[in-house]
Nucleic acid binder design. Structure first.
Length: 889
DNA sequence: GGTAAAAGACTTTTT
DNA sequence: GTCTTTTACC
């Protein structure tokens, strides 16, 4: 193993040198390697010595870079062990990226570090120490659908009017309680002291106090979760906090283990997560550090570094509390704040727009992003008559950029507020023959067939899991309907045991129809046999998946079906099989439980190809999913009052502020070119609505925008712009109206008039979804029959290895199902997605072959940009950026 | 208990 | 316009 130090020049590190796995050694980096190429603030943040550091990192300010360098700094300069570091992100993708960059920086030891999401870190803790809370091994993690199911079961039992109090809204309230660390005992004591969780036949009689209703369902929900040996998403955090608070020995262990805690996207933490950090760090544990400490040492609270940008807080709806970051300096003693305001991503024009929009938010700390990149091109605006036309224009602009300017499809992204907006855009791209990938929508692991298969696995692993067991009782159909279920359930409730227990003792149930008894026995035997198989092969999850798919009849039922949608379901199941095989291959100590965990904690954004991969496709996603990403060209669509900002946020200042931050996030995703579009008429759930321009458009200084079409046809006629008599304006596309300021009637006041006009509108002309093939939006078999040739080589990239987890990427291409072996992505790459604008002279990079190098020259030739790198002993090389196997450090 | 047709709800954003 | 849930009938 090669160690780098101050006097070694760059040394070759040949990853293939040893067949035997060794204890990976830490690559020690010199101070100059870690901060030599950083700006003053970045460098200060990397080196800061102190117990609490807040890095206020504006969009594109090199946040991840600072974070990874700081970790390397702590290791090499503070003398910390890799095992003493806990780095937390929100998404798996961010965690994977950080780990990857750390590996490049400090070597393979990074693979073993705690670099993970809040949720998976907590799972890890709970798996190890959850026994103290009564969690048995193999506990289930309920996703929101499972939780909703459970709430619905409870609410129905309690005779709650689920039309009025939907399971979702009840669950939302429960989630709020949890995020605030308000326990069910407290709620029960306050609002329903007479209720005992688990007691039968309790009826909520009076509805004059909704708090009582919530308190009771909350308590019962928690009770059932405990019975089922299950936790929900929020519990992962909450129960870990509980563990640390109530079990000093456990808390002690982690407090002395993690001496440095780093949290990314701190503005998105909720109260529970905030407390978790405090507990883990031992801020309130009362230990005092050695007075002369220059590092976290062994005693006293761990050193906490948080990185965030309050202007990018967009998850308040999920409980994120912006005060966590705003109050950091008061919350953590002797906290230091360092602001990173230099942006390395976008042009000044784009930043000016972002700054202008965000400045309309009240009560924020002023912050101004700036860049050395230069002014760049103006923002391009377009006002369409309707959503379809907007989509067609976006598609044509993408085609033009690709053809005329050589912009790679993968360098362009279309963003929108809500998933529902993707439809018309998708259609336009299909019609234009443009390759795309859509992120989000119905997630892979939320599909029915996948959830069914996972329910079997979960029930095998954790028989007490009532929700999953009951889910599969009659899936596939085996003649065990509501009646059979209720017989078993009744017995279970009488005896206060689980559904599983009741099933095991079904012989004692009286008055059971023979047919039902037969069916139940068959089901029980099936589960028993699969369970035996699983026990015998517990570290071969892919074999267990295969067994379940075959024995359960899930696969058979779908294969027999004539419904074309079921065909794609079969494919999805086979993909699940591949994912399991992949997991098994990549995980040394693979278990069924471990596999289920990976399926439980995935997000849409995890589905995105990371950095250096060129998907060859335009990316479409919601603004929320886009956070943390960047693209040379960004289309921000649907800038209308009611669409964006969303209608539900128009009346509330706080919510409107969040929408504005979302706009800020969207704008700052763009590196070179930003497009903003809107539609005058947009159909939502079948109805065409007339939409006013988004107020955010008005907040962008007019001189920054080059309007290709400023007003729509109908607006011009109404406002008398041009000649009233003429039918001017109905012609679309190349209408380069360059009129003076246009803020007349239609741009006047937004507030109250929104949504009042219901245009009979001209929608529909652009064709309805006639050719959407099978109604399934799953995409895997999406219109495979039509003209696949048009889509170039993108099929080769279809669903590559890293793309089998979570979320959906739909493309027009059928994923080639060749056994599930993953192809090495690198060999397929034609374009690594790197951008010349991201490099500056003096940057360090690693090359797959030559190792570490320093950038000495850059030639911006668009797609053919050349980067010149000094690799020390290997000489100075000129490389074509787009194909160079390099990574920026 | 299973199937098909009809009604109804739904859209923010997600770990 | 789509997806889920309810209802009517076999």
């Amino acid at each position: 193993m090669v160690v780098r130090n101050a006097h070694n020049d760059v040394t070759e590190w040949d990853g293939e040198e040893s067949g035997v796995e060794q204890e990976p050694e830490l690559i020690a980096r010199t101070a100059d390697e870690l901060v030599g190429d950083l700006n003053k603030q970045q460098s200060e943040a990397v080196q800061y010595r102190g117990a609490a550091l807040l890095i206020g990192a504006g969009a594109g300010s090199g946040k991840t870079r600072v974070l990874t360098r700081r970790i390397a700094w702590i290791l090499s300069q503070f003398g910390a062990w890799p095992s003493q570091i806990l780095a937390i992100t929100f998404t798996n993708k961010a965690a994977a990226e950080m780990r990857e960059r750390l590996t490049a920086l400090i070597g393979p030891v990074a693979q073993r570090m705690w670099v993970s999401t809040f949720h998976s870190a907590c799972v890890r803790i709970l798996r190890r120490d959850g026994k103290a809370l009564g969690l048995k091994s193999g506990f289930s993690i309920y996703d929101s659908a499972d939780s909703e199911r459970l709430v619905k079961i409870i609410a129905t039992e309690f005779n709650v009017d689920v039309k009025r109090y939907t399971p979702r809204s009840i669950l939302g309230r429960i989630s709020d309680y949890k995020n605030q660390l308000i326990g069910w005992r407290a709620q029960l004591a306050a609002y329903a002291p007479d209720f005992k969780p688990g007691s039968r036949n309790y009826r909520i009689s009076k509805f004059d106090n909704v708090e009582e209703l919530y308190a009771i369902i909350y308590a019962e929900y928690e009770h059932r979760l405990a019975m089922a040996n299950a936790v929900d998403f929020d519990d992962l955090i909450v129960r870990t906090v509980e563990l640390l608070r109530d079990h000093p020995d456990v808390a002690d262990y982690y407090r002395h283990k993690f001496r440095y805690i780093l949290v990314d996207e701190y503005q998105d933490t909720n109260h529970a997560q905030y407390v978790l950090i405090r507990e883990l760090a031992g801020v309130d544990a009362g230990e005092t550090p050695a007075p002369t400490a220059t590092a976290a040492g062994r005693q006293g609270p761990a050193w906490v570094t948080v990185v965030g940008d309050s202007d990018q807080s967009i998850y308040a709806f999920r409980g994120a509390d912006i005060r966590n970051i705003q109050d950091f300096e008061e919350d953590f003693p002797n906290a230091k704040t360092i602001l990173l305001e230099q942006n390395y991503r976008s042009t000044q024009t784009i930043l000016d727009a972002a700054n202008a929009v965000i400045s309309h938010n009240e009560g924020r700390k002023p912050k101004k992003l700036w860049t050395a990149v230069g002014k760049g091109e103006p923002i391009v605006g377009y006002a369409a008559d309707n959503a379809q036309q907007e989509a067609v224009w976006v598609a044509s602009e993408i085609a033009r950029l690709h053809a005329e300017d050589g912009v790679a499809y993968s360098d362009m992204a279309i963003m929108y507020r809500a998933n529902a907006q993707s439809r018309s855009l998708e259609e336009a791209l299909i019609n234009a023959g443009l390759p795309y990938q859509l992120i989000g929508g119905t997630k892979f692991y939320e599909r029915k067939e996948i959830k069914d298969a996972l329910a079997y696995l979960q029930a095998i692993l954790n028989p007490a899991d009532d929700v999953n067991l009951r889910r599969i009782l009659n899936v596939p159909k085996r003649g065990l309907g509501a009646r059979a279920e209720s017989i078993v359930l009744e017995y279970a409730r009488e005896r206060g045991t689980s559904f599983f227990d009741a099933l095991m003792h079904m012989e004692q149930i009286e008055d059971m129809p023979t047919r039902t008894a037969k069916g139940l026995k068959a089901f029980r035997d099936l589960m028993a046999s699969m369970s035996a198989f699983a026990r015998a092969n517990i570290n071969k999850p892919s074999d267990i998946v295969a067994e379940v798919l075959a024995k359960s009849g899930l696969l058979e039922e779908l294969q027999k079906s004539v419904d074309p949608q079921d065909q794609s379901r079969v494919e999805n199941l086979s993909q699940l099989q591949s994912t399991a095989a992949e997991y098994e291959q990549n995980t040394p100590d693979a278990t069924l439980g471990g596999f289920l965990e990976t399926t439980a904690l995935v997000a849409d954004s995890d589905q995105l190809p990371n950095g250096n991969e060129d998907s060859g496709k335009v990316t479409m996603m919601t603004l929320h999913t886009a956070k943390g990403l960047e693209y040379p060209v960004v289309f921000l669509t649907g800038l209308e009052q009611g669409t964006f900002p969303h209608s539900r946020s128009l009346e509330d200042t706080a919510e409107l502020s969040e929408e504005r931050r979302l706009a800020y996030v969207g704008i700052t995703r763009a590196k070179r070119r930003l497009y903003i579009t809107r539609a005058a008429v947009r159909a939502q759930w079948g109805q065409a609505n007339e939409m006013l321009p988004s107020q955010f458009l008005e907040e962008i200084p007019d001189e920054l925008i080059d309007w290709k079409r400023r007003e729509t046809g109908s607006e011009r006629m109404r406002t008398g712009w041009g000649d009233g008599d003429e039918f001017g304006g109905w012609d679309d596309e190349d209408d380069f109206s360059s009129g003076p300021t246009f803020g007349t009637a239609s741009y006047g006041s937004y507030g109250s008039s929104h949504g009042s006009a219901y245009g009979s509108g001209s929608t529909g002309r652009w064709g309805s979804a006639a050719h959407r093939s099978n109604g399934s939006r799953s995409g895997s078999t999406y219109g495979s029959g039509r003209s696949s040739g048009t889509y170039g080589s993108s099929s080769r990239y279809g669903s590559h290895s890293s793309g089998t987890r979570g979320g959906r990427i739909s493309t027009r291409h059928v994923t080639p199902k060749s056994g599930g072996t993953s192809m090495p992505v690198s060999s397929l790459q034609k374009d690594n997605g790197l951008n010349i604008g991201d490099f500056s002279i003096g940057d360090y990079v690693t090359h797959d072959q030559y190792g570490l190098g320093k950038v000495v020259d850059l030639q911006d030739k668009g797609r053919n940009s050349v980067i010149t790198i000094d690799f020390g002993s290997d000489g100075v090389k000129r490389l074509m950026l787009r194909v160079a196997p390099i990574e920026k450090l």
